[in-house]
Simulated assay, not measured.
Amino acid sequence: MAYTSLTPLIEEGVLDEVLEGLGFLHANDHCRRNCTHCPAFGDTTPVQMTPFATLTRLAHDVGEAFRDRGITAQRSIVSWRISDPLDYHVRDGRTTRTTFDVARIWREHLGQGLYLVTNGSEGKRFARTALRDVAAAPEVVSQVKLTVTPCDQGWGSERYLHSIAEDIATLAPLWDLGSTRMEDPSGLRFRINLKSTRDRREEALEFMAQALELAGLRPGAAEKAMADPRRISAKDIYDLGSYVGDSPVVNAISIKGDNGKRFKSTADTRTHHQYGIYPDGGVRVIDMYEFKVYEATGESGAPLRVDLRSAA
């Protein structure tokens, strides 16, 4: 059998179930960007990166298993969750692998472009290189969303403004392409999500206008982008909780129910429960409405894992 890294799931009799519910194959996990609106706010866990050779083999094995078992992926399989995909960079021999390399193996082995949601390159050389490579080979991504928000730790600095402007300039050609992400077939390949609380909306819009000007868009392109929600979408910030409890964002919209639990149903764009394979080989169940993660167990009651040794 070609997909030996998945043997533990076969032995537990859950491979088909995991494939049908698979939403995440983590290249990286955990985040130290500390954006205040993010559930990762306050996370002090070291960032985890899956070695590129291991990630490549896992993507290969998952793709083979899909084909051999006649299962079609029901959603975009992403390489991140509460982390930023552009933070992925690992040494692979003499080569530094980035999110662009992750996107290539998604296209090759999983048959879909990689879906990216990022708060930007932060001026990091490897991240900017990844964005330039993506822009030059857009078939490797299904959609890229750049989040611009006053909740970013760099908000208000010249460095943040210029970094966002450069990222926009790099990705702007993707506005000319349609999305290939199955959850957004009518969208564009690139979108900016301008996330703020309602009382900071004007501040955010003013920043956006500045960034577009610095990005050097051709005449009329900035106005067109601001007026088209498929290009720039102004969104409210919800209190999704964080590692330290409630969101520290003032005036974030609460999604707590009468039972005190957060629950944001998005049945039109995501399945409630999805499986994720993590950099440590663990397989976990992710509650996409309540923003919680649970250990997945097999018929024996033992935690589910994949075999990273055979994937290396």
Score class of each variant (00 low, 15 high):
163 S>N: 15
163 S>P: 02
163 S>T: 10
164 I>A: 01
164 I>T: 03
164 I>R: 01
164 I>N: 03
165 A>V: 10
166 E>T: 07
167 D>R: 04
167 D>I: 00
167 D>W: 02
167 D>T: 02
169 A>G: 09
169 A>K: 06
169 A>S: 07
170 T>R: 02
170 T>P: 00
170 T>K: 02
172 A>L: 04
172 A>F: 11
172 A>V: 08
172 A>W: 09
172 A>H: 08
173 P>D: 15
174 L>T: 02
174 L>M: 07
175 W>T: 00
175 W>D: 02
175 W>E: 04
175 W>I: 04
175 W>M: 01
176 D>P: 00
176 D>F: 09
176 D>R: 15
176 D>I: 03
177 L>G: 09
178 G>S: 10
179 S>W: 04
179 S>D: 10
179 S>R: 02
180 T>M: 04
180 T>V: 03
180 T>I: 03
181 R>W: 03
181 R>Y: 08
181 R>H: 09
181 R>M: 07
182 M>Q: 12
183 E>Q: 09
183 E>C: 08
184 D>H: 08
185 P>G: 14
185 P>V: 14
186 S>Y: 13
186 S>F: 13
187 G>S: 11
190 F>K: 00
191 R>D: 13
191 R>C: 08
191 R>I: 02
192 I>H: 03
192 I>D: 11
193 N>Q: 15
195 K>M: 14
197 T>E: 02
197 T>M: 03
197 T>G: 02
198 R>D: 12
201 R>L: 11
202 E>I: 04
202 E>L: 05
203 E>D: 13
203 E>H: 08
204 A>F: 06
204 A>D: 06
205 L>T: 09
